[in-house]
Design a protein around this nucleic acid. Structure first.
Length: 202
DNA sequence: TCTACGATCTTT
DNA sequence: AAGATCGTAGAT
């Protein structure tokens, strides 16, 4: 199957969340005319991960996390940025993958308009920018990614090499979770944040 | 109700 | 280094 041609099935998400996160690198997100290739992700476990929104149990905000994998979990951060997560694992596990950075594949004009005319890596490096470029807000919370016509996930080209590092912005987490290597990025991609804290995977 | 703060981004 | 900006969670 050629890159960007196949819709990814919900079964893709029914695996350990770190594995799902790594395999999401290189896959394509599309919404209307905008197409993005995923270049950086973070894995968040269930209620046992003190860095995860699931750490306080089921709440109104994190409800989509507790559903079966294959849907979107979107929340508002710092009162102004929307974060796109893809829920992983079976219902009740509450794991999710944060999409942190992407490379533009289609709809560059639309992306630039939404991003205030920016260009270069600053255009799509960072989770708030990804949701903004795709035109997403919380009305997409719980959206099923395998349903045609909305926000979709397609097969892309798997990366040659992958980098790993600690997750960003989780100083509130317990020591063990804080140091876990659950951030992944495509090696040699310019569409990556905090490059210096990433190392090649064995 | 009230308060504190966040899986961020931009400008200074 | 700090301001923008508001929903959420926990406290009152």
């Amino acid at each position: 199957m050629r890159p960007g041609t196949g819709l990814i099935s919900p079964q893709f998400f029914l695996r350990p969340v770190a594995e799902v996160a790594r395999d999401l690198l290189g896959q394509h997100l599309s919404h209307e005319k905008v197409g993005l290739r995923i270049t950086e992700v973070e894995a968040y476990g269930g209620s046992s991960d003190s860095a995860s929104h699931a750490r306080m149990g089921r709440t109104a905000r994190n409800a989509p996390m507790w559903e079966a994998g294959g849907r979107a979990y979107i929340f508002l951060c710092y009162g102004m940025h929307h974060m796109l997560n893809l829920v992983a694992g079976p219902a009740g596990e509450a794991a999710a993958v944060l999409i942190r950075s992407c490379e533009p594949v289609a709809g560059l004009e639309t992306i630039r308009d939404r991003r205030g005319g920016m260009d270069g890596p600053a255009l799509l490096t960072g989770p708030g920018k990804v949701a903004q470029a795709l035109g997403l807000d919380r009305s997409f919370n719980g959206h099923l990614l395998h349903e045609p016509g909305g926000l979709e996930l397609h097969t892309g080209e798997h990366p040659r090499a992958i980098l790993a590092g600690v997750r960003v912005g989780i100083d509130y987490a317990q020591p063990g979770d804080r140091e876990a290597l659950l951030r992944f990025a495509i090696a040699d991609s310019p569409w990556v944040t905090h490059r210096t804290s990433l190392r090649p995977m064995r």
